[in-house]
Computed example of a mutant assay.
Amino acid sequence: MTRWLTEPVPRSRVAFFRTIVYVFVFLDLVVFTPWVRAHANTPGDLYQPLMIGRLLPLPTPTPLLVNTIFWALLVLSLAAATGRAPRLLGWAVFILYFEWMIIAMSYGKVDHDRIGFLVALAVLPTVGRTRFRDQSLTEAGGWALRVTQIAVICTYFLAALAKLRIGGLEWVTSGVLAQAIIRRGTELADMIAVVPGLLIVSQFGIIAFELLSPLIFVVPQRWRNWVVAFFYSFHVATFATITISFAPHLIAMTSFLPLERIGRLTRRRAGSSAATADVTPD
């Protein structure tokens, strides 16, 4: 089990994953969830902190607190994306973003697409320094990616258990997708909704997909990228029909990908360009 949890990976894979994660923190604040900043002006008596916010305890959001975290995260996330001071900057980004999520989710809306991403932020500072071109192996990096993968899969599996716990087996034959399409469906969803029985089949498929998602860990490595591609296609279909993106979850899911190939491809192209320049006549 320990060997599986700490299976070595190229340091360059961790380096690319780290950059993707920290760049997304910046984009999340300004593109995907800019509404969180509006809580700076929300009356304090509407703040109902999540359990972790009550246990610590964390302060009630104020304009000073929210805006300080916002601007600090913008600066620190971009700095962390460079790979410098990975522990110092990594822990700072995790702590601030964790508090940012407490502020975001303590007003009646809790998103479950943040679990894997928060785990990624928590474990990346433990890896230490990595470089894009470093192909040496790291067990610490392997552990960081593995626990992120586990969190990603738990997001699916626990979502299925929640559906069955709250809705029972009747969930798969209910009108939950129909309601989602009525609320936020696209034209594509409207076309699908009129096909008899298709939404019910889709709900069976969703439950099966989520319950079987842990099998990705036993799929042979040569097929795993195709399984991950299927996961991404599921979210493409979700966004195309009911406009739910799961963006942070999709970022965390890149922990499954051989990201070190980006560096190899870049070097190959650079080498090809250099070779072409050498043979080009003056």
Rank of each mutant, 00 (worst) to 15 (best):
V23S: 07
T266F: 06
L198Y: 11
V93A: 12
P281S: 08
R269I: 01
D28Y: 14
G90Y: 01
V31M: 12
G167I: 02
R11T: 02
A180R: 11
L56R: 02
L5N: 07
L78S: 09
Q221C: 00
R264W: 03
H235M: 12
G90V: 01
I216S: 10
V227G: 11
P214V: 05
K109W: 12
A252T: 04
Y22G: 09
A237S: 13
R84C: 02
I95Y: 07
L73K: 07
W91V: 14
L88E: 06
V127W: 02
L212W: 09
R3L: 14
R3E: 15
E210L: 09
F16A: 10
F217P: 05
G197Y: 10
R261T: 07
F132V: 02
V9F: 00
G175Q: 08
L50S: 03
V147L: 11
Q135C: 03
A85L: 14
V123C: 13
L212K: 08
P125A: 09
W226G: 13
Q149R: 10
R224W: 06
L169D: 06
T254K: 04
P34C: 10
S202T: 14
S202H: 12
T42P: 03
G108H: 06
S255Q: 01
A92F: 06
T6S: 15
I20V: 15
A274G: 01
F246W: 15
L211I: 03
D278T: 08
A120W: 05
P61R: 02
L46D: 12
D111W: 14
F94V: 08
I153C: 02
L46F: 14
W100H: 06
F70W: 14
A151Y: 03
R269W: 01
R165F: 11
V31N: 10
V110T: 10
P10N: 06
P59Q: 00
V75K: 02
V219Q: 08
A270C: 05
I115K: 05
S233K: 00
I150K: 05
I69N: 09
G108W: 03
F117Q: 03
A159M: 12
L198F: 15
A72S: 14
A162Y: 06
V110C: 03
Y47D: 11
Y232I: 00
F230G: 15
S106D: 07
A275D: 13
M191G: 00
R84P: 01
I206V: 15
R87E: 14
I206R: 03
A140F: 09
V176T: 01
Q149S: 07
F132C: 01
N41L: 15
S233R: 04
L257M: 14
W223V: 11
H112G: 12
P281K: 01
R133A: 13
T155N: 13
P57I: 08
R261D: 04
A80N: 02
T33G: 07
R222T: 09
T148I: 06
W171K: 04
F234E: 04
V14T: 04
A72Q: 04
H235G: 09
P248W: 02
E260T: 02
P220D: 10
A178H: 14
H112A: 06
P61T: 02
L118H: 07
I200W: 08
G108R: 03
R224M: 12
A240N: 13
T62I: 03
I244S: 09
R183T: 11
V172P: 04
L64G: 10
